[in-house]
Design a protein around this nucleic acid. Sequence first.
DNA 1: ACTTTAAAAAGTGTATTCACTTGTTGGCAG
DNA 2: CTGCCAACAAGTGAATACACTTTTTAAAGT
Lengths: 243, 243
Amino acid sequence: MTERSEQGVLESAGGSRAGNRALSVTDHIREAILGGMVGAGERLNEVRLSRTLAVSRTPVRAALQALAGEGLLDYAPNRGFSVREFPLDAIVDAYDIRASLEGLAARFAAERGLSPDEKAVVERSLADGDKLLERGAFEAGDRTIYRGINGDFHDTLLAAARNRMLSEMIRMCHHVPVSSSRNIVAFNHRDVRRRHDDHHRIYDAIMAREPWRAEMLMREHVSGVKASLVKSLTEGRDQEPFE
Amino acid sequence: MTERSEQGVLESAGGSRAGNRALSVTDHIREAILGGMVGAGERLNEVRLSRTLAVSRTPVRAALQALAGEGLLDYAPNRGFSVREFPLDAIVDAYDIRASLEGLAARFAAERGLSPDEKAVVERSLADGDKLLERGAFEAGDRTIYRGINGDFHDTLLAAARNRMLSEMIRMCHHVPVSSSRNIVAFNHRDVRRRHDDHHRIYDAIMAREPWRAEMLMREHVSGVKASLVKSLTEGRDQEPFE
DNA sequence: ACTTTAAAAAGTGTATTCACTTGTTGGCAG
DNA sequence: CTGCCAACAAGTGAATACACTTTTTAAAGT
């Protein structure tokens, strides 16, 4: 069973990272997992992967090790690697963790201040969002566009926090399969409007150098996403919040 | 330069984990790093390590990749692994991260409740601490003993939070070299007394099922350790808080 | 003496092989 | 028919050989 066979899904691995197969293989498998192509709990067979990706087992093993380090895979001695399972509880919890951590990042950003570049990017994301939202309704690719804007905002604040460990932990939260932004599609205009207002307030707090307020606002902001997720889940619809 | 040569420090690797060299090698190298035997920024040579530990390069590579996943090593293509550097800022920040995360853990524990076993362990740690502290002054091995008591308290609450990702992140915080509890020795009786009182209050909040209060108290508790660290650093003494 | 450059040394990246463990299948006994 | 056990198949663990990259070294030219 689970004869889904990565064939065709993980083909060729000719990724961008020239000169180091292990890295491109890592990217490849990560995408496959986050894209939901390999299914939770599924065991990853080294020889099959190496055949599929046309490399030896060595870089495959390296990739699996790396992905286990990212929290995407589980390892059991003499039994290899399998896709980590994320119960619904864990997915919901991940938003709380992210709320705490991103709140902390906002605090650090407020304490440390933004570089001119960072300031520019954030202000641009705010302006672009305002412009996109002023129409009052979404058109075709608008959600995808706003996802980029949203990503810029959060990524830049995270960079401004200037703490590597914090970045990595937040990245881990983003790599929880279901909460992964790539799977997220639907969201109504009013909610996005509200989230974007949050962004404005958070930025104000940071520029006013009010760390505590920035932290609280960011925590609340991310918690709001969790609430939306839970709501959409309990309502039985499988639409998901996108941030 | 840096001819410190792991020889003698990392010898033999005859670790407990029979049957899987990679795992025992991982433990060995981790201990060496956390014990400060290898120095920040230092590059880890695969062939030398494999000779020293009397295994082939394969399990060494596996171990290094695993440790990179734990955040202890950096990796650069064609240049291998090196011990990650932790600037003082990052070390201090790690306490803030830990404060946020352990606060969250306390909240989860209050929401989810403790199992009878967990309850027993925590209560025991509180009682043991009370007993140890009632004398009003520390004797020879008392700090070491209290470190165990303290560890039981925190570990158990973390287990009660029932979230794997959270556990792993907090473990990462503990693995920041300098903050690693194994390096920590001195701390005065009054501070420990105070920390232990914190434990009592945190436990009360959890048993009273007051998640918000538990979270706040725990955050404050861990932040207190950071404050002590910063104080001891600015005072120029190199004694460190132990929790 | 200093810079440049090329060769060699050192070190990492990958493939392949063998060893060992685990899981499965088929037969045998109860 | 069920449960147990052995042989086998499949898969992971480790060692080794070789390819490629980086760093060092040393020599030659300026």
